[in-house]
Design a protein around this nucleic acid. Structure first.
Lengths: 241, 241
DNA sequence: CCCATATCAAATGTCAGACATTTAAAAGTC
DNA sequence: GACTTTTAAATGTCTGACATTTGATATGGG
Protein backbone atom coordinates (compact mmCIF):
# COMPACT_ATOMS: atom_id res chain seq x y z
CA UNK A 1 0.00 0.00 0.00
CA UNK A 2 2.06 2.91 -1.27
CA UNK A 3 -0.39 5.50 0.03
CA UNK A 4 1.82 8.07 1.69
CA UNK A 5 1.42 7.81 5.45
CA UNK A 6 4.98 8.67 6.42
CA UNK A 7 5.27 9.48 10.11
CA UNK A 8 1.66 10.60 10.17
CA UNK A 9 2.44 14.28 10.64
CA UNK A 10 0.02 15.74 13.10
CA UNK A 11 -2.72 18.01 11.82
CA UNK A 12 -1.61 21.00 13.84
CA UNK A 13 1.92 20.63 12.51
CA UNK A 14 0.80 20.52 8.91
CA UNK A 15 -1.34 23.60 9.49
CA UNK A 16 1.54 25.55 10.96
CA UNK A 17 3.79 24.42 8.13
CA UNK A 18 1.29 25.51 5.52
CA UNK A 19 0.79 28.90 7.09
CA UNK A 20 4.53 29.35 7.55
CA UNK A 21 5.05 28.55 3.87
CA UNK A 22 2.49 31.13 2.89
CA UNK A 23 4.29 33.71 4.96
CA UNK A 24 7.71 32.78 3.60
CA UNK A 25 6.38 32.94 0.05
CA UNK A 26 5.05 36.43 0.57
CA UNK A 27 1.52 35.20 0.05
CA UNK A 28 0.79 36.58 3.49
CA UNK A 29 2.58 39.87 3.99
CA UNK A 30 3.70 41.55 7.19
CA UNK A 31 0.76 43.17 8.87
CA UNK A 32 -1.81 40.98 7.16
CA UNK A 33 -4.40 39.53 9.40
CA UNK A 34 -5.00 35.81 9.36
CA UNK A 35 -8.55 34.50 9.45
CA UNK A 36 -9.93 34.04 12.93
CA UNK A 37 -9.28 30.79 14.73
CA UNK A 38 -12.85 29.70 14.10
CA UNK A 39 -12.54 30.39 10.39
CA UNK A 40 -9.23 28.56 10.16
CA UNK A 41 -10.81 25.63 11.95
CA UNK A 42 -13.48 25.56 9.27
CA UNK A 43 -10.96 25.96 6.44
CA UNK A 44 -8.74 23.15 7.68
CA UNK A 45 -11.69 21.11 8.87
CA UNK A 46 -10.47 20.66 12.40
CA UNK A 47 -11.15 21.99 15.85
CA UNK A 48 -10.19 25.37 17.21
CA UNK A 49 -7.81 23.77 19.71
CA UNK A 50 -5.82 22.26 16.87
CA UNK A 51 -5.64 25.57 15.05
CA UNK A 52 -4.50 27.26 18.23
CA UNK A 53 -1.63 24.84 18.67
CA UNK A 54 -0.50 25.62 15.15
CA UNK A 55 -0.71 29.35 15.80
CA UNK A 56 1.28 29.05 19.01
CA UNK A 57 4.03 27.41 17.05
CA UNK A 58 4.11 30.24 14.55
CA UNK A 59 4.11 32.76 17.38
CA UNK A 60 7.09 31.01 18.96
CA UNK A 61 8.97 31.50 15.70
CA UNK A 62 8.06 35.18 15.64
CA UNK A 63 6.09 34.67 12.46
CA UNK A 64 2.84 36.02 13.87
CA UNK A 65 1.68 38.04 16.81
CA UNK A 66 -1.77 37.82 18.30
CA UNK A 67 -4.02 40.48 19.79
CA UNK A 68 -7.13 39.98 21.79
CA UNK A 69 -10.34 41.90 21.66
CA UNK A 70 -12.85 43.05 19.11
CA UNK A 71 -10.56 43.64 16.19
CA UNK A 72 -7.82 41.38 17.39
CA UNK A 73 -6.56 38.21 15.80
CA UNK A 74 -3.35 36.81 14.43
CA UNK A 75 -1.24 39.15 12.31
CA UNK A 76 1.82 38.37 10.27
CA UNK A 77 4.62 39.91 12.26
CA UNK A 78 7.10 42.20 10.63
CA UNK A 79 10.21 40.45 11.82
CA UNK A 80 12.55 43.03 13.30
CA UNK A 81 16.29 42.70 13.64
CA UNK A 82 15.85 42.90 17.41
CA UNK A 83 13.38 40.04 17.58
CA UNK A 84 15.42 37.87 15.24
CA UNK A 85 18.54 38.64 17.22
CA UNK A 86 16.89 37.56 20.46
CA UNK A 87 15.95 34.18 19.14
CA UNK A 88 19.28 33.76 17.41
CA UNK A 89 21.11 34.49 20.64
CA UNK A 90 18.89 32.18 22.67
CA UNK A 91 19.34 29.34 20.23
CA UNK A 92 23.08 29.87 19.95
CA UNK A 93 23.50 29.91 23.72
CA UNK A 94 21.66 26.63 24.07
CA UNK A 95 23.63 25.16 21.22
CA UNK A 96 26.92 26.07 22.84
CA UNK A 97 25.98 24.79 26.26
CA UNK A 98 24.37 21.57 25.06
CA UNK A 99 27.23 20.65 22.79
CA UNK A 100 29.84 21.36 25.40
CA UNK A 101 31.78 23.65 23.11
CA UNK A 102 35.18 24.27 24.58
CA UNK A 103 36.33 27.77 25.25
CA UNK A 104 39.09 27.75 22.68
CA UNK A 105 36.73 26.86 19.86
CA UNK A 106 34.24 29.49 20.91
CA UNK A 107 36.88 32.18 21.28
CA UNK A 108 38.40 31.26 17.93
CA UNK A 109 35.00 31.64 16.27
CA UNK A 110 34.19 34.82 18.08
CA UNK A 111 37.34 36.66 17.16
CA UNK A 112 37.29 35.35 13.62
CA UNK A 113 33.83 36.84 13.26
CA UNK A 114 34.88 40.04 14.86
CA UNK A 115 37.74 40.48 12.46
CA UNK A 116 35.18 40.14 9.69
CA UNK A 117 33.76 43.56 10.42
CA UNK A 118 37.01 45.43 10.90
CA UNK A 119 37.37 46.65 7.34
CA UNK A 120 33.83 47.94 7.22
CA UNK A 121 34.03 49.46 10.67
CA UNK A 122 37.23 51.26 9.77
CA UNK A 123 35.69 52.59 6.59
CA UNK A 124 32.21 53.44 7.77
CA UNK A 125 32.35 54.48 11.42
CA UNK A 126 31.20 57.91 12.49
CA UNK A 127 31.41 60.01 15.63
CA UNK A 128 28.45 58.26 17.28
CA UNK A 129 30.17 54.92 16.94
CA UNK A 130 33.35 56.20 18.56
CA UNK A 131 31.24 57.64 21.33
CA UNK A 132 29.57 54.26 21.93
CA UNK A 133 32.94 52.57 22.04
CA UNK A 134 34.25 55.04 24.58
CA UNK A 135 31.14 54.76 26.72
CA UNK A 136 31.64 51.03 26.89
CA UNK A 137 35.29 51.48 27.81
CA UNK A 138 34.35 53.88 30.58
CA UNK A 139 31.92 51.37 31.99
CA UNK A 140 34.63 48.75 31.86
CA UNK A 141 36.98 51.05 33.74
CA UNK A 142 34.55 51.61 36.58
CA UNK A 143 34.68 49.14 39.43
CA UNK A 144 32.04 46.53 38.78
CA UNK A 145 31.22 42.88 39.17
CA UNK A 146 32.54 40.31 36.77
CA UNK A 147 29.09 40.04 35.22
CA UNK A 148 28.84 43.78 34.65
CA UNK A 149 32.37 43.75 33.26
CA UNK A 150 31.39 41.09 30.77
CA UNK A 151 28.22 42.95 29.88
CA UNK A 152 30.23 46.06 29.11
CA UNK A 153 32.59 43.86 27.17
CA UNK A 154 29.70 42.72 25.02
CA UNK A 155 28.60 46.33 24.60
CA UNK A 156 32.07 47.22 23.34
CA UNK A 157 32.11 44.49 20.79
CA UNK A 158 28.58 45.28 19.80
CA UNK A 159 29.55 48.89 19.17
CA UNK A 160 32.52 47.76 17.11
CA UNK A 161 30.27 45.57 15.01
CA UNK A 162 27.64 48.25 14.58
CA UNK A 163 30.29 50.67 13.38
CA UNK A 164 30.24 48.76 10.10
CA UNK A 165 26.79 50.24 9.46
CA UNK A 166 25.61 47.04 7.87
CA UNK A 167 22.52 45.74 9.64
CA UNK A 168 22.82 42.26 8.19
CA UNK A 169 26.35 41.92 9.40
CA UNK A 170 25.45 43.37 12.78
CA UNK A 171 22.67 40.87 13.17
CA UNK A 172 24.89 37.91 12.43
CA UNK A 173 27.85 39.07 14.44
CA UNK A 174 26.02 40.43 17.44
CA UNK A 175 24.17 37.16 17.75
CA UNK A 176 27.38 35.20 17.78
CA UNK A 177 29.16 37.48 20.22
CA UNK A 178 26.28 37.67 22.66
CA UNK A 179 25.73 33.95 22.58
CA UNK A 180 29.25 33.46 23.85
CA UNK A 181 28.82 35.64 26.87
CA UNK A 182 28.09 32.74 29.25
CA UNK A 183 31.41 31.21 28.32
CA UNK A 184 33.17 34.53 28.74
CA UNK A 185 31.49 34.88 32.11
CA UNK A 186 33.46 31.87 33.28
CA UNK A 187 36.54 34.05 33.35
CA UNK A 188 37.31 35.81 36.60
CA UNK A 189 39.30 38.93 36.03
CA UNK A 190 41.98 40.15 38.36
CA UNK A 191 42.39 43.91 38.54
CA UNK A 192 45.52 43.95 36.46
CA UNK A 193 43.87 41.76 33.82
CA UNK A 194 41.13 44.30 33.55
CA UNK A 195 43.65 47.06 33.09
CA UNK A 196 45.34 45.12 30.34
CA UNK A 197 42.07 44.53 28.57
CA UNK A 198 41.03 48.14 28.85
CA UNK A 199 44.36 49.20 27.40
CA UNK A 200 43.79 46.93 24.44
CA UNK A 201 40.32 48.33 23.95
CA UNK A 202 41.62 51.87 23.96
CA UNK A 203 44.11 50.88 21.31
CA UNK A 204 41.29 49.44 19.22
CA UNK A 205 39.25 52.61 19.54
CA UNK A 206 42.28 54.67 18.64
CA UNK A 207 43.18 52.55 15.65
CA UNK A 208 39.61 52.70 14.45
CA UNK A 209 39.62 56.47 14.68
CA UNK A 210 42.91 56.53 12.79
CA UNK A 211 41.30 54.17 10.27
CA UNK A 212 44.12 51.69 10.64
CA UNK A 213 42.55 48.30 9.95
CA UNK A 214 45.78 46.38 10.31
CA UNK A 215 46.34 47.70 13.80
CA UNK A 216 42.78 46.84 14.84
CA UNK A 217 43.25 43.30 13.62
CA UNK A 218 46.56 43.06 15.39
CA UNK A 219 45.08 44.15 18.71
CA UNK A 220 42.26 41.67 18.27
CA UNK A 221 44.86 38.95 17.90
CA UNK A 222 46.41 40.01 21.18
CA UNK A 223 43.01 40.12 22.82
CA UNK A 224 42.18 36.63 21.68
CA UNK A 225 45.43 35.24 23.00
CA UNK A 226 44.88 37.03 26.30
CA UNK A 227 41.36 35.72 26.71
CA UNK A 228 42.43 32.16 26.10
CA UNK A 229 45.33 32.51 28.49
CA UNK A 230 43.09 33.95 31.20
CA UNK A 231 40.61 31.15 30.77
CA UNK A 232 43.27 28.47 30.95
CA UNK A 233 44.80 30.03 34.04
CA UNK A 234 41.37 30.00 35.65
CA UNK A 235 40.88 26.38 34.71
CA UNK A 236 44.23 25.38 36.12
CA UNK A 237 43.36 27.14 39.35
CA UNK A 238 40.01 25.39 39.53
CA UNK A 239 41.65 22.03 38.90
CA UNK A 240 44.20 22.54 41.65
CA UNK A 241 41.51 22.87 44.28
CA UNK B 1 -2.06 50.64 42.52
CA UNK B 2 1.47 49.40 42.00
CA UNK B 3 0.47 45.77 41.93
CA UNK B 4 2.25 44.43 38.91
CA UNK B 5 -0.28 43.46 36.25
CA UNK B 6 1.76 44.37 33.20
CA UNK B 7 0.29 43.14 29.96
CA UNK B 8 -1.38 40.18 31.68
CA UNK B 9 0.87 37.59 30.16
CA UNK B 10 -1.15 34.58 29.18
CA UNK B 11 -0.89 31.44 31.27
CA UNK B 12 0.39 29.28 28.46
CA UNK B 13 3.10 31.81 27.70
CA UNK B 14 4.28 31.94 31.30
CA UNK B 15 4.37 28.16 31.40
CA UNK B 16 6.48 27.91 28.28
CA UNK B 17 8.77 30.64 29.59
CA UNK B 18 9.24 28.84 32.87
CA UNK B 19 9.99 25.53 31.22
CA UNK B 20 12.33 27.19 28.75
CA UNK B 21 14.19 28.81 31.62
CA UNK B 22 14.58 25.47 33.35
CA UNK B 23 16.04 24.02 30.18
CA UNK B 24 18.37 26.94 29.61
CA UNK B 25 19.56 26.74 33.21
CA UNK B 26 20.42 23.10 32.84
CA UNK B 27 17.80 22.17 35.41
CA UNK B 28 16.27 20.00 32.73
CA UNK B 29 18.96 18.28 30.70
CA UNK B 30 18.88 16.95 27.18
CA UNK B 31 17.04 13.65 27.08
CA UNK B 32 15.13 14.31 30.29
CA UNK B 33 11.48 13.60 30.15
CA UNK B 34 9.05 16.26 31.20
CA UNK B 35 6.04 15.30 33.30
CA UNK B 36 3.03 14.25 31.29
CA UNK B 37 0.64 16.91 30.09
CA UNK B 38 -1.86 15.90 32.74
CA UNK B 39 0.74 16.22 35.48
CA UNK B 40 1.91 19.58 34.21
CA UNK B 41 -1.69 20.73 34.16
CA UNK B 42 -1.94 19.80 37.82
CA UNK B 43 1.39 21.42 38.70
CA UNK B 44 0.53 24.67 36.98
CA UNK B 45 -3.11 24.47 38.00
CA UNK B 46 -4.53 24.83 34.53
CA UNK B 47 -6.08 22.71 31.83
CA UNK B 48 -4.32 20.28 29.58
CA UNK B 49 -5.09 22.44 26.53
CA UNK B 50 -3.17 25.33 28.05
CA UNK B 51 -0.20 23.11 28.83
CA UNK B 52 -0.27 21.79 25.30
CA UNK B 53 -0.07 25.27 23.82
CA UNK B 54 2.98 25.92 25.95
CA UNK B 55 4.59 22.68 24.83
CA UNK B 56 3.94 23.45 21.18
CA UNK B 57 5.79 26.71 21.60
CA UNK B 58 8.79 24.91 23.07
CA UNK B 59 8.68 22.36 20.28
CA UNK B 60 8.70 25.14 17.70
CA UNK B 61 11.92 26.44 19.26
CA UNK B 62 13.47 22.97 19.11
CA UNK B 63 13.64 22.85 22.89
CA UNK B 64 11.61 19.68 23.21
CA UNK B 65 10.43 16.85 21.04
CA UNK B 66 7.34 14.80 21.75
CA UNK B 67 6.60 11.15 21.25
CA UNK B 68 3.28 9.42 21.40
CA UNK B 69 2.44 6.08 22.85
CA UNK B 70 2.87 4.24 26.10
CA UNK B 71 6.23 5.57 27.16
CA UNK B 72 6.04 8.71 25.08
CA UNK B 73 5.92 12.27 26.29
CA UNK B 74 7.90 15.45 25.97
CA UNK B 75 11.65 15.15 26.10
CA UNK B 76 14.24 17.87 26.27
CA UNK B 77 15.80 17.87 22.83
CA UNK B 78 19.52 17.75 22.37
CA UNK B 79 19.85 20.71 20.05
CA UNK B 80 21.99 19.73 17.10
CA UNK B 81 23.95 22.08 14.88
CA UNK B 82 21.80 20.96 11.96
CA UNK B 83 18.53 21.80 13.68
CA UNK B 84 19.81 25.14 14.93
CA UNK B 85 21.14 25.94 11.48
CA UNK B 86 17.78 25.24 9.89
CA UNK B 87 15.95 27.64 12.12
CA UNK B 88 18.72 30.21 11.81
CA UNK B 89 18.54 30.07 8.05
CA UNK B 90 14.76 30.26 8.00
CA UNK B 91 14.73 33.26 10.31
CA UNK B 92 17.49 35.02 8.44
CA UNK B 93 15.77 34.52 5.10
CA UNK B 94 12.57 36.02 6.41
CA UNK B 95 14.47 38.85 7.99
CA UNK B 96 16.17 39.72 4.73
CA UNK B 97 13.03 39.55 2.64
CA UNK B 98 10.84 41.42 5.10
CA UNK B 99 13.28 44.22 5.63
CA UNK B 100 13.93 44.67 1.94
CA UNK B 101 17.66 44.39 2.35
CA UNK B 102 19.34 45.59 -0.80
CA UNK B 103 21.71 43.35 -2.61
CA UNK B 104 24.76 45.46 -1.95
CA UNK B 105 24.28 45.32 1.81
CA UNK B 106 23.71 41.58 1.76
CA UNK B 107 26.71 40.91 -0.44
CA UNK B 108 28.89 43.15 1.69
CA UNK B 109 27.87 41.20 4.79
CA UNK B 110 28.25 37.87 3.12
CA UNK B 111 31.76 38.40 1.87
CA UNK B 112 32.83 40.06 5.08
CA UNK B 113 31.72 36.96 6.93
CA UNK B 114 33.39 34.72 4.44
CA UNK B 115 36.68 36.47 4.83
CA UNK B 116 36.34 35.77 8.55
CA UNK B 117 37.04 32.10 8.04
CA UNK B 118 39.90 32.42 5.59
CA UNK B 119 42.70 32.32 8.13
CA UNK B 120 41.30 29.28 9.84
CA UNK B 121 40.49 27.53 6.58
CA UNK B 122 44.00 28.10 5.28
CA UNK B 123 45.49 26.77 8.49
CA UNK B 124 43.17 23.86 9.20
CA UNK B 125 41.94 22.44 5.90
CA UNK B 126 42.64 18.84 4.97
CA UNK B 127 42.30 16.73 1.86
CA UNK B 128 38.60 16.07 2.37
CA UNK B 129 37.93 19.81 2.40
CA UNK B 130 39.77 20.33 -0.87
CA UNK B 131 37.83 17.45 -2.33
CA UNK B 132 34.51 19.05 -1.29
CA UNK B 133 35.61 22.33 -2.85
CA UNK B 134 36.50 20.65 -6.12
CA UNK B 135 33.27 18.67 -6.19
CA UNK B 136 31.34 21.90 -5.88
CA UNK B 137 33.38 23.49 -8.66
CA UNK B 138 32.72 20.51 -10.91
CA UNK B 139 29.02 20.84 -10.33
CA UNK B 140 29.26 24.52 -11.16
CA UNK B 141 31.07 23.70 -14.38
CA UNK B 142 28.38 21.30 -15.56
CA UNK B 143 25.54 22.81 -17.56
CA UNK B 144 22.74 23.48 -15.13
CA UNK B 145 19.91 25.84 -14.31
CA UNK B 146 20.52 29.09 -12.52
CA UNK B 147 19.03 27.61 -9.37
CA UNK B 148 21.33 24.60 -9.48
CA UNK B 149 24.25 26.91 -10.18
CA UNK B 150 23.38 28.93 -7.09
CA UNK B 151 22.97 25.77 -5.03
CA UNK B 152 26.42 24.60 -6.04
CA UNK B 153 27.64 28.09 -5.24
CA UNK B 154 26.30 27.71 -1.73
CA UNK B 155 27.94 24.29 -1.48
CA UNK B 156 31.27 25.81 -2.46
CA UNK B 157 31.08 28.49 0.16
CA UNK B 158 29.86 26.00 2.70
CA UNK B 159 32.87 23.82 2.03
CA UNK B 160 35.16 26.81 2.37
CA UNK B 161 33.61 27.65 5.72
CA UNK B 162 33.74 24.08 6.97
CA UNK B 163 37.42 23.91 6.10
CA UNK B 164 38.01 26.01 9.18
CA UNK B 165 37.07 22.96 11.27
CA UNK B 166 35.34 25.11 13.82
CA UNK B 167 31.72 24.03 14.25
CA UNK B 168 30.67 27.24 15.95
CA UNK B 169 32.04 29.33 13.14
CA UNK B 170 30.52 27.03 10.54
CA UNK B 171 27.14 27.33 12.18
CA UNK B 172 27.21 31.10 12.17
CA UNK B 173 28.67 31.50 8.70
CA UNK B 174 26.72 28.80 6.94
CA UNK B 175 23.52 30.28 8.29
CA UNK B 176 24.36 33.68 6.94
CA UNK B 177 25.48 32.45 3.55
CA UNK B 178 22.51 30.16 3.01
CA UNK B 179 20.07 32.82 4.07
CA UNK B 180 21.30 35.01 1.25
CA UNK B 181 20.70 32.46 -1.46
CA UNK B 182 17.32 33.91 -2.49
CA UNK B 183 19.01 37.21 -3.16
CA UNK B 184 21.80 35.52 -5.08
CA UNK B 185 19.16 33.66 -7.08
CA UNK B 186 18.06 36.96 -8.48
CA UNK B 187 21.19 37.01 -10.58
CA UNK B 188 20.98 35.47 -14.01
CA UNK B 189 24.32 34.24 -15.22
CA UNK B 190 25.47 34.38 -18.78
CA UNK B 191 27.81 31.62 -19.87
CA UNK B 192 30.89 33.78 -19.80
CA UNK B 193 29.96 35.03 -16.33
CA UNK B 194 29.89 31.47 -15.15
CA UNK B 195 33.28 30.84 -16.62
CA UNK B 196 34.66 33.87 -14.86
CA UNK B 197 33.20 32.75 -11.56
CA UNK B 198 34.50 29.24 -11.92
CA UNK B 199 37.95 30.60 -12.71
CA UNK B 200 37.83 32.62 -9.48
CA UNK B 201 36.74 29.59 -7.52
CA UNK B 202 39.58 27.52 -8.90
CA UNK B 203 41.96 30.24 -7.81
CA UNK B 204 40.48 30.13 -4.34
CA UNK B 205 40.87 26.39 -4.11
CA UNK B 206 44.42 26.66 -5.36
CA UNK B 207 45.34 29.42 -2.96
CA UNK B 208 43.83 27.47 -0.10
CA UNK B 209 45.89 24.45 -1.01
CA UNK B 210 48.98 26.64 -1.19
CA UNK B 211 47.95 28.05 2.20
CA UNK B 212 48.07 31.58 0.86
CA UNK B 213 45.52 33.49 2.92
CA UNK B 214 46.23 36.83 1.27
CA UNK B 215 45.48 35.45 -2.17
CA UNK B 216 42.23 33.88 -0.98
CA UNK B 217 41.12 37.20 0.44
CA UNK B 218 42.11 38.96 -2.72
CA UNK B 219 40.08 36.63 -4.91
CA UNK B 220 37.12 37.04 -2.57
CA UNK B 221 37.37 40.79 -3.12
CA UNK B 222 37.22 40.24 -6.87
CA UNK B 223 34.30 37.88 -6.45
CA UNK B 224 32.36 40.39 -4.38
CA UNK B 225 32.88 43.12 -6.95
CA UNK B 226 31.83 40.78 -9.73
CA UNK B 227 28.66 39.70 -7.97
CA UNK B 228 27.59 43.26 -7.33
CA UNK B 229 28.34 44.22 -10.93
CA UNK B 230 26.35 41.27 -12.27
CA UNK B 231 23.42 42.13 -10.07
CA UNK B 232 23.43 45.76 -11.10
CA UNK B 233 23.67 44.85 -14.76
CA UNK B 234 20.66 42.60 -14.31
CA UNK B 235 18.75 45.34 -12.56
CA UNK B 236 19.51 47.83 -15.30
CA UNK B 237 18.30 45.34 -17.88
CA UNK B 238 15.11 44.74 -15.95
CA UNK B 239 14.50 48.47 -15.65
CA UNK B 240 14.95 49.05 -19.38
CA UNK B 241 12.09 46.72 -20.23
C1' DC C 1 11.33 -22.87 27.63
C1' DC C 2 10.55 -19.73 23.97
C1' DC C 3 7.95 -17.30 20.78
C1' DA C 4 3.93 -15.31 18.70
C1' DT C 5 -0.34 -13.21 19.63
C1' DA C 6 -3.83 -10.63 22.10
C1' DT C 7 -4.80 -7.46 25.53
C1' DC C 8 -3.92 -3.53 28.24
C1' DA C 9 -2.42 0.95 29.89
C1' DA C 10 -0.35 5.37 29.43
C1' DA C 11 0.55 8.95 26.83
C1' DT C 12 -0.16 12.31 23.07
C1' DG C 13 -3.45 14.07 19.38
C1' DT C 14 -8.01 15.65 18.47
C1' DC C 15 -12.71 17.16 19.07
C1' DA C 16 -16.92 19.65 20.84
C1' DG C 17 -18.94 23.03 23.48
C1' DA C 18 -18.88 26.23 26.95
C1' DC C 19 -17.38 30.36 29.60
C1' DA C 20 -14.06 34.35 30.70
C1' DT C 21 -11.71 38.34 29.17
C1' DT C 22 -10.34 41.93 26.28
C1' DT C 23 -11.04 45.43 23.00
C1' DA C 24 -12.87 48.57 19.72
C1' DA C 25 -16.81 50.13 17.66
C1' DA C 26 -21.66 51.34 17.99
C1' DA C 27 -25.42 53.13 20.52
C1' DG C 28 -27.17 55.96 23.83
C1' DT C 29 -27.18 60.01 27.14
C1' DC C 30 -26.34 64.53 28.90
C1' DG D 1 -20.06 67.48 20.93
C1' DA D 2 -18.13 64.83 24.66
C1' DC D 3 -18.90 61.23 27.78
C1' DT D 4 -20.84 56.69 29.16
C1' DT D 5 -22.95 52.27 28.25
C1' DT D 6 -23.78 48.49 25.52
C1' DT D 7 -22.52 45.15 22.36
C1' DA D 8 -20.09 42.07 19.31
C1' DA D 9 -16.05 39.75 17.88
C1' DA D 10 -12.04 37.84 18.91
C1' DT D 11 -8.56 35.40 21.76
C1' DG D 12 -7.70 32.80 26.23
C1' DT D 13 -9.16 29.07 29.10
C1' DC D 14 -11.70 25.04 31.02
C1' DT D 15 -13.96 20.53 30.91
C1' DG D 16 -14.65 16.08 29.43
C1' DA D 17 -14.55 13.00 26.03
C1' DC D 18 -12.71 10.03 22.29
C1' DA D 19 -8.96 8.46 18.88
C1' DT D 20 -4.42 6.84 18.14
C1' DT D 21 -0.04 5.24 19.09
C1' DT D 22 3.12 2.29 21.34
C1' DG D 23 5.52 -0.17 24.82
C1' DA D 24 4.49 -3.50 28.42
C1' DT D 25 2.07 -7.47 29.95
C1' DA D 26 -0.38 -11.53 29.90
C1' DT D 27 -1.69 -15.63 27.43
C1' DG D 28 -1.50 -19.45 24.66
C1' DG D 29 0.77 -22.96 21.66
C1' DG D 30 4.80 -25.29 19.94
Amino acid sequence: MPTKTPPAKSISLSISDRLAARIADGDLMAGDRLPSEAELALQFDCSRATVREALKRLAAKNLIRTARGHSGGAFVADLTYAAALDSHVATSMLLLSMNAVDFQTAAEARFALERACVDLAVAQHDRADLRALKDAINRLASRCTDEAFCAADVAFHRALVDAGHNPVLSYQLAGAVEAMQPLMNMITYADRDRETIIRLYRRIAGALQARDAGEVRHVLDELEALMIALFQRGQARRARR
